[in-house]
Nucleic acid binder design. Sequence first.
DNA 1: ACCTGAACACCGTTCAAGT
DNA 2: ACCTGAACACCGTTCAAGT
Lengths: 267, 267
Amino acid sequence: MERYSMLDQCSNRAKMSGMAIRTRQSQRRRQVLTRERIVETAVELLDEVGADALTVRALTGRLATGPGAIYWHIGNMDELLEAATDAVVATALATRPAQPAEAGGAAGEIRSVALGLFDAITEHPWLAAQLAVQLIRNPWGPVTLRIFESIGRPVRALGVPQGDWFTTTSTLVHYILGATAQTSHGSGDGSVPGSEADRAEFLDTASRAWQELDPDDYPFIRAIAEQMREHDDREQFRSGIDLVLTGITTLHVKGSAPGRLPRPSTA
Amino acid sequence: MERYSMLDQCSNRAKMSGMAIRTRQSQRRRQVLTRERIVETAVELLDEVGADALTVRALTGRLATGPGAIYWHIGNMDELLEAATDAVVATALATRPAQPAEAGGAAGEIRSVALGLFDAITEHPWLAAQLAVQLIRNPWGPVTLRIFESIGRPVRALGVPQGDWFTTTSTLVHYILGATAQTSHGSGDGSVPGSEADRAEFLDTASRAWQELDPDDYPFIRAIAEQMREHDDREQFRSGIDLVLTGITTLHVKGSAPGRLPRPSTA
DNA sequence: ACCTGAACACCGTTCAAGT
DNA sequence: ACCTGAACACCGTTCAAGT
């Protein structure tokens, strides 16, 4: 049982790989195979064809090797998925669009991190499912840890008392991951991004279907059918974040006017 | 592409199945095969051996048939998983422990629904992953719809103005699903429930590992290491719900004293 | 140390054939 | 209408053998 494995994301063999790249040789195809290069290629494949089509055979094809070569560097498929997810999340968090002149302070930083993740998922639809998988089968693995740290720091800066840091940050992170999961609206494996027209049509069909549900079983769903057809995922996500932030400041930040939040920058 | 399939969860063949059970015959093993019986057996298998071990071969073994029989009734594996998830969620929502004498009103109802789902996941560890999967690959499928309806009704009763019903309910549902995902702490496939001692040891190891992280990279995680070791998942979940509820009442419910919530029953 | 590639033990799904 | 069971086209992973 590899339950509770915690952070041991490296293959048993293959640790150091600071070896110099075999200098000239041929340019593209004949590079040395490294763990990094495998992860990069995995991300490429995930972006292009989706999670279901990322197979070790597809990898060996693109890298011009055999399965044994992959498994020398990588351990297994789950580890590769985790590494790919962590890599994409890391760059998404690091390269967030600089908030216009520190706007919003700590609350603005939280919004920025959250929207950074949201946008990363829009760009890499497979990411939503992988974030969920990581959260579930490795609840405190590198991916979750990274997100917690990014949200936790501004939570602290917000003035939340230390005793509430963990609960508060958890609530934010859990909301973010839940919301981004539903919003990915891909085919689940995250293959094609899905056009804007597709999405409009989808919402239209869904909304119509909702209005024809049994009024006894689904009165509420029927009542929000129209609202849901018109909603914008990203805007709704922002609202959700602000809702949770309001809860935090109201409940935990003393001296704050309840319900008052630093104005979100209209970026 | 079966994207945006929406609610068409039935196999193309096999609709009616109100046929009388072939009366006497032998008792257990020689029942007629129905979609319902397959779903029931799937839930049994999921509970006993986890999601990874639910295969059509395992099903045919327990049901004493061949794969063709399964596929006559069921369509494909994804559909079976969805049906199993929906069945468990439906009974979890229907059989919630009656809140002690209506305590808490609408807010209490929301807590009750949320905790009902939480407890269902504790009982069926595979459920966490499946809820996530449903949310991602079928964002408005029967499972999500059912949960939305259950949360939306008390949201309405809370006094939230109609224009905010959708956003408010979404925020709650997304938090619930994100939180329950991390809390499942199984092996991901949701096989063994995991003992209390296992869990304590896991938290201990994780907490220690956190304290040895790089102070430059993970200052926040290091700071909450102790707090996380002592936390109780269910209690934390309650706090998260209350945090979101506070945000809702503060922001959307006029006439409510901000930060004041109906006292949660100490059940 | 790093890589090759055949082979193994599995999957989900299909489909002609039976009743 | 419902079921059988062999067969198909895939998986991830292993491992003796090469360099």
